[in-house]
Amino acid sequence: MKRFRSELSVAFAIVALLIVLAFLAPGFFTRENLSDLVLANMPVLIVALGMTLVIVTGHIDISVGTTFAICSVAAGEFAKLGLPAVGAGMAACVIGAMLGAINGALVAYVRIPSIVVTLAAMVAFRDALRWITQGAWVQDLPANFQWLGTSQAASNGITFLVAAALVISIGWGLRNLPAGRSVYATGSNENAARLVGIDSALVTFSVFAITGALTGCAALLNSIRFNQIPSNAGIGMEMKVITAVVVGGTAITGGRGSIQGTLLGVILLGIISPALTYLGFSAYWERAIQGLIILCAVGFDAVRSRLERSAGDFAERTA
């Protein structure tokens, strides 16, 4: 139980929201709605997996929205060059990984703070993409691009399986593999990690490259649901992703966090907006309510851990 303590308040918020929905808007729980919600939040979830690694290492990556746009456009352009959708997807992942690697190299080896590097990457690459595309969408995609050349249901199934495989493998690997443990070690205390023989610079470099590759993967899975690709995709995505990760209990200071927490964070943020629609709130108040729910979830967590701390102090003093 103690293992999951930091995720409890988020889980509690989700359950509370679902109970309210069950009474006031049972239509929320139709199979169709749930599957739409899962598909709509898939890109954020996949990017959030990488972001969890980055934040656990004690860094941050605010360039993911820009990377998402570049990879979407690249996947489309490669598909138009005649590559099969899978090949175009691979190419998108490689480009994402390359962009992530540039960030990672600057953070790990040149030792520039990650927020600075990725802020620069976010602004510079976004403007470069705007310049190159001049805002035009990628159109006239080959017919086998949408749904990967299969049916809608099959393609959605594939998307779901890929996401599930990523969540499970990264979640398991982060807890159980030496490489996963070294991510926590690097985030807790980089110098100590280096002294016990962990190549912390390589860990930092890798988490950025992995985040880039996952962003490319998310971009592909999102693009194949449509038959044209806008060049301004992913604006504000970094905020959504980072919010989901930190709401899921990952410490922004590094060293603490989990994939199951991130999963809960994505679920909470993903259902708030449609839930408010189902409950009949006006769109005009949605953003304010969203901010309040996030503040409450985090505030509750902080108050609880503070109470626990003082209870611990008391126990120590009276022992």
């Binding site: 930190v246 410490a251 922004i252 949605e286 304010a288 901010g291 503040l295 505030g299």
Partner: peptide
């Protein structure tokens, strides 16, 4: 929230980032 409750500044201001703008949009209907 930052000094008293010790919540990281990034999280607090991420929350108020949406809350402040949201209230402004809410009272004016944008």
């Amino acid at each position: 929230l930052i000094a008293e409750f010790k919540i990281p500044a990034l999280i607090v201001t991420l929350g108020s980032f949406s809350a402040f703008r949201g209230i402004a949009e809410g009272i004016t209907h944008g």
